[in-house]
Design a protein around this nucleic acid. Structure first.
Length: 958
RNA sequence: GGGCGUAUAGCUCAGUGGUAGAGCACUUCGUUGACAUCGAAGGGGUCGGGAGUUCAACUCUCUCUACGCCCACCA
């Protein structure tokens, strides 16, 4: 006996993983084989393995191991994401701990430090993926900022720019004042927060009054501080109350700015007073209203700096006391919001909100309490400020069209299908994608800015887009070439990475006259690209694109992408768009979306709630195989997974069960089968189990093909435990220990083969224990020629043996019924009994003869007689057409047996009655499918016969 | 305001147009050489409510209710 009594995962996991990886078996050389490809969602370089990764990667590993076992050239691409914002934050946080900050360093120095951090402490997750057993191709591990990906990113940017699909635009962006960068729509999380709704009087200028005589318009706002940059008041064009004042002017009380009342359908007559203040530079709706009212983006007033502190507007009308104030109260210091409200109130322009207190008295408040959908940055955690800047945008709408078509045509299959609608809905309403980020860590945008040429002169005012010429090229040299062409022979072109003005919207060149030689300086864009811009290229960038590599040719499109639905828009959709655009083909043929792993109580796991389950802890406690099996068994399509430690424990027990079954086999000279095909078998029990393998394999392949991980796991689980361990191993014990050497040899061969099939079929789910058993089970017979990870997936090519199945099925039912009867009659389970068979035909006699030893050893039925039943107390069992009468020795509770038989009889009668009722309905006979009628008739006959036999049995008891 | 999902045994979840299943939990019994991380037997559900289609509905359609998620500019 070489296997220990209990399976200890920790003792084997690290050993096998290292062996697989070192021997290069995660990507065996199979250049002739059909390729199969998955790319792993690149985890953040700052990340550590959380339970969601465990699910995501387990599913991928199951698929890739299955395909590898089927002989394919299975490639699982792996790598990490540079995670721009997250990584920069980590490094900055470390600097803060040492009383340093990013701006203490030059950009180059800082980026260098991030690289150092990445080399030293980044990527702990890759070690953790190994612990989970994931068989990725580490030999070609990638990084979204490695040389190849960098080239791919630059090329994509340049190509899209040249196609007009990337452009620079001045418009409102979601600005994160904590991180001081623009972010995309997807990175904004809208959260309902408690806020206030203030009502103000905006005085009409020039003595104008409303029809009702009032000399002001009432406006309401949740953001009073922005009134420092108000440029209009809008009313609905059909709003009768305001018809006479459209086009008239307002005199804003705090700034003294005069602006017009405009008609715009944005104003909702039902809401508040029906008039709304318009601040085009600080509100997305107002921006649109402002444009309709004729303001150019460059003329819209801006009153906030990058940290959301008040700055002077271009018209200089913001009072001095506001300059430098934060937008809101911060660190106990009054913000612009509070000061605006205070001043408006002091000057009598605040309309108080009146409500009744609990005593029914009217009370005045400054503002009406209100729930406000407030945008927060998903990383920085502060309120997003709509801010007017120049940024780079991807024309997502154009790119989305073929990506929509790909799903509609079936070129991409989304599994489960319910996600299609979400995908379409988002793609069809997609907005321009802001891809520039004001960070230091990331792919620097390959664009250089220089002054526009006006005739023979250069425009020196570079503070807006119109004065800038943009040169987009993959390299500085190419950019300079472009610039030379643009400026012509009169200028020499210099370039620089620096710039002399702070972000975000300063893009200033330096030009100089040096005597007779005129030179012009172009400088590179300071910004980097959104991390998701580079990860969108993952399916082809990792395969060598833009080089035309063999890998690219063989492995693009990928076969499958597995991802959580939470990154459907962030990543999957963008991969679809970029893949189709750059490669002309979809990135993957199937897209499988799984849900979230939730805490036991169903809540979302989060660090702040403290309910995060550490997958590594689970691996320590139960083993990686058990955790993986849990993930697979719980993964049903379209539903989240609730964490359940007891269930993980259950699959640990399953591993132990298989381990012990293997020990039994080992002790009986079973194991190390060398044949792929099922051995020849004559014994029904062996023919039966071979048939069971064939059926199990079919449903397992079906489930895996359909990406039904739960069904696949359950199939192999129940075959192993219920069929193989509980019945087959029990039924063969008498054969192995019997005198028929040929039968025992056959049984050892079959049992060894079946165990092999289990080990192979289970390997994608439980790679460690199966690899261990694969080798240890063959230790006695000379070992294996290859490791299980690259073994052959079963192809038994055996037919289903219906005779053997019927016989073993009968055997199992007879033994089970005997056990039940014993328990119900309070007979010790081990008691051996004799059976008298009524209505048994010759076929049954032969079965009983064949199965005599199993009936004796497993069923405790030591003898059978076909003589008339004995006198006295008996227990009676009806199986199929025969009744088995078991004489009971000693004092026996006749009433208990009567009750038992009665219960069984009633059950049969009830079913028979239901069936006959259905059959007596002419509509059923007429309209139901013939097979259904046929089956009902057969079932009825069987149930009636059974009921009769049970009645006869009852009658015999008197 | 749209869109989606889920409601089946005490718990967590599968499931099929023809009278419901698993794991855990629970009850009873069990030290016969694979396994107590186990074995045997068992209890437990009018499949969220209502209506419709059908010979037949847990399964299809509609509707209601509850919970969850995503998207959306209501100041």
């Amino acid at each position: 006996m070489t296997l220990d009594k209990n399976f200890d995962p920790a003792a084997i996991e690290a050993r096998w993983y290292a062996h697989w990886e070192q021997s290069g078996q995660f990507r065996p050389e199979r250049s002739e084989a059909e390729p199969f490809t998955i790319v792993n969602p690149p985890p953040n370089v700052t990340g550590s393995l959380h339970i969601g990764h465990a699910l995501d990667n387990t599913l991928q590993d199951i698929v890739i191991r299955h395909e590898r076992l089927k002989g394919k050239d299975a490639l699982w691409v792996v790598g990490m994401d540079h995670a721009g914002i997250a990584t920069q934050m980590v490094v900055e946080r470390q600097m803060n701990e040492q009383q340093q900050k990013r701006t203490d360093f030059t950009r180059e120095e800082f980026v260098e430090k991030v690289w150092e951090w990445k080399e030293e402490s980044g990527g702990t997750i890759t070690g953790q993926l190994r612990r989970l057993g994931c068989s990725m191709d580490w030999s070609n591990e990638r990084f979204t900022m490695d040389e190849g990906m960098n080239e791919a990113v630059l090329k994509v940017f340049v190509d899209l720019y040249n196609d007009g699909l990337i452009y620079r635009d001045k418009r409102l962006v979601n600005w994160d004042p904590a991180l001081k960068t623009a972010i995309s729509d997807l990175e904004v999380e809208t959260v309902d927060t408690k806020g206030s709704f203030w009502h103000f009087k905006y005085p009409l200028a020039d003595g104008v009054t409303l029809d009702d005589g009032r000399d002001y318009i009432e406006v309401a706002t949740t953001r009073p501080e922005t009134m420092l940059a108000d440029m209009a008041v809008a009313v609905h064009p059909t709003d009768e109350r305001y018809q006479s004042v459209i086009g008239k002017e307002i005199l804003q009380p705090i700034t003294g700015r005069r602006f017009k009342i405009v008609a715009d359908e944005h104003a909702d007559p039902e809401l508040g007073s029906g008039a709304v203040k318009i601040t085009p530079g600080h509100d997305f709706n107002d921006f649109e209203v402002g444009k309709r009212a004729g303001f150019a983006a460059g003329d819209m007033l801006n009153m906030l700096d990058g940290e959301a502190n008040v700055c002077q507007t271009s018209d200089g009308l913001v009072p001095d006391e506001y300059i430098g104030l934060h937008r809101f109260k911060k660190d106990g210091i009054k913000g612009a919001r509070e000061l605006v409200v205070q001043q408006m109130k002091e000057q009598g322009f605040l309309i108080p909100h009146v409500s009744k207190n609990k005593d029914g008295e009217e009370v005045e408040h400054d503002a009406e309490p209100r729930t406000i959908a407030t945008p927060f940055g998903d990383r920085g955690g502060v309120v997003i400020e709509p801010w007017l800047t120049d940024q780079w945008y991807v024309d997502a709408e154009t790119l989305a069209q073929p990506a929509i078509e790909a799903v509609k045509s079936g070129a991409i299959e989304i599994v489960p299908k319910t996600w299609e609608k979400t995908y379409f809905n988002w793609m069809e309403n997609i907005q321009p994608w802001c891809v520039s980020r004001q960070l230091w860590w990331g792919h620097r945008i390959p664009a250089w800015f220089g002054p526009k040429k006006d005739g023979n002169r250069l425009i020196t005012d570079q503070n807006n887009l119109d004065g800038l010429e943009i040169f987009v090229a993959q390299t500085e040299e190419e950019a300079i070439d472009l610039a030379r062409t643009y400026y012509g022979p009169d200028y020499s072109v210099l370039s620089t990475n620096d710039r002399d003005i702070e972000m975000p919207d300063g893009m200033v060149h330096v030009s100089m006259d040096t005597g007779s030689l005129r030179s012009v300086m172009i400088h590179r864009d300071q910004d980097v690209l959104d991390t998701w811009f580079s990860s969108a290229l993952w399916p082809f960038g990792t395969l060598g694109w833009p080089e035309k590599t063999k890998d690219l040719e063989r492995h693009y499109p990928n076969d499958l992408l597995i991802s959580g639905f939470d990154i459907l828009f962030f990543w999957d959709a963008r991969m679809a768009m970029q893949g189709i655009k750059m490669m002309g083909e979809v990135p993957w043929k199937r897209l499988y979306l799984h849900g979230l792993v939730r805490a036991e109580d169903g809540s979302k796991m989060s660090k702040s709630k403290g309910n995060v389950v550490d997958p590594l802890g689970l691996i320590d406690e139960y083993g990686a195989d058990a955790l993986r099996f849990f993930m697979a068994a719980m993964e049903s399509q379209g539903r989240d997974i609730k964490m359940d430690d007891k269930r993980v424990e259950g699959y640990r027990n399953f591993a132990t069960k298989l381990w012990n079954a293997s020990r039994f086999c080992e002790a009986n000279g079973i194991g190390g089968s060398t044949t792929l095909a099922a051995p020849e078998a004559s014994l029904p029990v062996n023919r039966w189990i071979i048939s069971e393998v064939v059926e199990t394999l079919a449903s397992l392949d079906k489930a895996l093909g359909d990406l039904r991980f739960d069904a696949a796991a359950n199939t192999i689980y129940h075959f192993t435990w219920d069929r193989f361990c509980d019945w087959y191993l029990e039924l063969i014990k008498p054969v192995l220990q019997g005198e028929d050497a040929a039968a025992a040899d056959e049984t050892r061969a079959v049992a060894g083969w079946v165990l092999d099939q289990i080990i192979v079929m289970l390997h994608p789910f439980m790679p460690f224990i199966t690899e261990e058993l694969w080798h240890s089970m063959a230790a006695e017979t000379g070992g294996r020629n290859y490791d299980l990870i690259v073994a052959k997936w079963p192809e038994p090519k055996a037919a289903i043996d219906t005779d053997a199945k019927a016989e073993v099925d009968w055997l199992i039912r007879l033994i089970s019924a005997t056990r039940t009867a014993k328990v119900e009659l309070n007979i010790a389970p081990g008691t051996k009994m004799a059976a008298h068979v009524r209505d048994g035909d010759s076929n049954l006699q032969e079965r009983i003869a064949r199965q005599g030893s199993a009936l004796d050893r497993v069923g405790r039925l030591e003898s059978f007689s076909f003589d008339p039943s004995p006198e006295g107390a008996t227990a009676q069992i009806v199986i199929d057409g025969a009744t088995y009468v078991l004489p009971l020795a000693g004092a026996i509770d006749i009433d208990a047996e009567k009750a038992r038989l009665n219960k069984a009889m009633e059950a049969s009668q009830k079913e028979a009655k239901s069936l006959s009722g259905r059959l007596s309905n002419p509509n059923f006979i007429e309209k139901a499918k013939p097979e259904a009628v046929e089956k009902a008739r057969a079932d009825l006959a069987e149930k009636e016969a059974e009921a009769e036999r049970l009645k006869a049995a009852l009658d015999r008891l008197g």
